[in-house]
Design a protein around this nucleic acid. Structure first.
Lengths: 204, 204
DNA sequence: TCCCGACTGTACTGCGAGTCCAGTTGACCC
DNA sequence: GGGTCAACTGGACTCGCAGTACAGTCGGGA
């Protein structure tokens, strides 16, 4: 089956697994080509350098994450029409998804990139930035919808609240990686969920 | 004045600034010795390799962070004896501190290390782990004190809540780095503070 | 048949980490 | 004043990895 996968995707698959496991710099082109069973020349045919590889990986990762959020909250919307409950269900689904991954979530490429950004060019950094801004917009929109139905008990900056979803996930993944525990990220999401329940308790 | 600073500390200072700016791998020993005005031989006299440097940096960083938390919450306790208000004041001080740093907080070595951990040996990884567990214990203790006076409106896992302080800071710093904005971390802390206000609203 | 895209394979440069070691310099010790 | 030691300097070396260059191969479509 895997022979069917084109070489470029095969490189990306191998590279992503290796990078998430041990970081970008620690992953050598040598081992990527070994894993993908191609020659060094073949690698450089597809990617002009490691930076191009990083960019392609990031693009793919962000697309996958966006699709995931789309699906998750679409499913949540099916289950409940109320914007608050939709959000609460979506977060629960997200937490469950993170928990189900037996080895823990592979870790977020965003943070990994952010902390090694001098390795990458402006394009990669901007990709990263745009992804987070996209998530800010997405969640801010959902929170504003909620705020139209529920009176927030405390005034909060909606942009910051939108960022908090990404921040809690990223922070949770950092803890998980550093602690070598398995469910910190999902626990953090569940705590954030409790926050939202407290914040939006009263219908207008 | 700087001549007074011993070589080892000078190396650590230069290295810390460089690593926080561009990541560990992107920082060459060449530039560290240039900055510290020593020879390559001199560097290896103090640190047997880059791993030893990482370990020393991490140790120093964690000590500094712990001292910071000690001072911050001691000061907060002076200002208010109630455990909840002490926590709220402490978080506010922390947020202000982060905001006052003109170029933004240098970024947390913890996350940086977590995402490049194959570069480091078990000792470094364990140092990282112990630091986070220490903060978990610290904040968990404070939250339990609060919970003795205030009835939590929702049941929460105290360990996870303790972790949330670290997670929110780490996550905020990731966002800040990736977005190239300046106050995400402090905004995230302030949002977390609001969470605590909502959670512990009712005195027993 | 020929062309082309997708490679293979090899040989090369350059950089940075890490090793080895011989030699210097200043401080303190007897 | 001689000896010792810690704290270096400086240079020569190896090794692994990124990246370059380029000649050659191979299978499929026009």
């Amino acid at each position: 089956m895997d022979q069917k996968v084109d070489t470029r995707s095969r490189i990306l698959n191998i590279a992503e697994a290796a990078v998430l496991e041990k970081g970008f710099e620690a992953t050598s082109i040598e081992e990527i080509v070994a894993g993908a069973e191609i020659s060094r020349g073949g690698f450089f045919y597809h990617f002009k350098d490691k930076n191009a590889l990083a960019r392609a990986m990031l693009e793919r990762y962000i697309d996958a994450e966006n699709t995931l959020y789309d699906d998750l909250f679409a499913r949540a919307r099916e289950l409940n029409d109320d914007p608050l409950h939709c959000m609460l269900i979506g977060l629960k689904l997200l937490a469950e998804m993170l928990e189900e991954m037996p080895t823990g979530h592979p870790g977020c490429v965003i943070a990994s990139t952010a902390y090694q950004d001098r390795l990458f060019d402006e394009g990669v950094r901007d990709l990263n930035r745009q992804a987070i801004l996209g998530w800010r917009k997405r969640f801010r929109g959902m929170f504003e919808e909620i705020a139209q139905v529920y009176e927030p008990r405390e005034a909060v900056n909606m942009d910051a609240l939108g960022d908090m979803v990404s921040g809690v996930v990223e922070g949770g993944l950092v803890l998980q990686r550093a602690l070598r525990e398995h469910n910190n990220a999902s626990e953090q999401i569940m705590l954030f969920r409790t926050y939202l329940k407290l914040l939006f308790a009263d219908k207008k």
